[in-house]
Amino acid sequence: MLRFFGFRLLRAAITIVMVVSFAFVVLRLSGDPAQIIMGADAPPEAIAAFRRAWGLEEPLWLQYFHYFGAILSGDLGRSMRDGRDAIALVVERIPATLALTVPALLIKLGLGIPAGITAALHRNSFIDRAVMMLAVAGFTVPSFVLGLLLVLVFAVQLGWLPSGGQESWRHAILPIVTMGVGGAAVLARFTRSAMLEVLGQPYIRTASAKGVPWRAVVWGHALPNAAIPTVTIIGFMVGSLIAGAVVVESVFSWPGVGRLLVVAVANRDLAVVQCILLLVAATMVTANLVVDLLYGALDPRLRQRTA
């Protein structure tokens, strides 16, 4: 078990190092930050001062080391636009994003998994077809289209709900629904096929042939086994709690991390972008790690395969 943990941790650490290196390389490749920030027509003295302040005159490998050191000590630079600490800027947006993504995740789980299981257990029934139709729609309708349609209906036509902003809980309803419905559809599809796969396995058929009650077969054998692949996608959803709302936040002008990211990208505010990138990678890697460890607990075969 220790070996497995060690292996997983190592992989996670390598991934984080790769993300950081990626950020560094891309940052340097993207041109002279001094030029970018100060503008091409800035006076040379100002540029030189900037370069000195940001350590841009050192050799590249030294910059890389400093970069790593800075990140390890939690110093992710300052927003190149308003000079504030990038990390503070990002962190203060997190609650707003979580206010959308956590309820949306609950909707996804609460709707998607039961719908998928029901569909699988009643294969080809009306319920199955309805669930799958919705799942298809959930995938093919992009969230910005769904969001705008909801705005069009509930805000513009009916006037029941506000179309954007963050003044009250009512403002959160449409974004949460937008995200939750789409995600629930994907999860339902996924759960359904995982269930169907398990239900087709010989041991399930054997169990039910031996006279084990169907209910016990489903709860005792099928669900735990179908949970294994489903956990992956849930892990992915948990991993994207922090930045999973980029598009939806933009549609509804919700001041979360995603909105911040889009604005930062548009303004090429590199420190902020990089900070969000690292934060997202860290959450994602952590979520993947937890999922993998859960797997290890759920399915001993996987430990073998990866070790």
Binding site: R11, I14, T15, I16, M18, V19, F22, A23, V26, L27, L29, S30, G239, S240, A243, G244, V246, V247, L261, V262, A264, V265, R268, D269, L270, V273, Q274, I276, L277, V280, A281, M284, V285, N288
Partner: peptide, 23 residues
Amino acid sequence: ALVDFSASLPFLILALAVLAFFG
């Protein structure tokens, strides 16, 4: 390892970062 790396970031975020850096 590269596969792990891609799996560690939602592609949208990665794409946004690249666009921010490279224009």
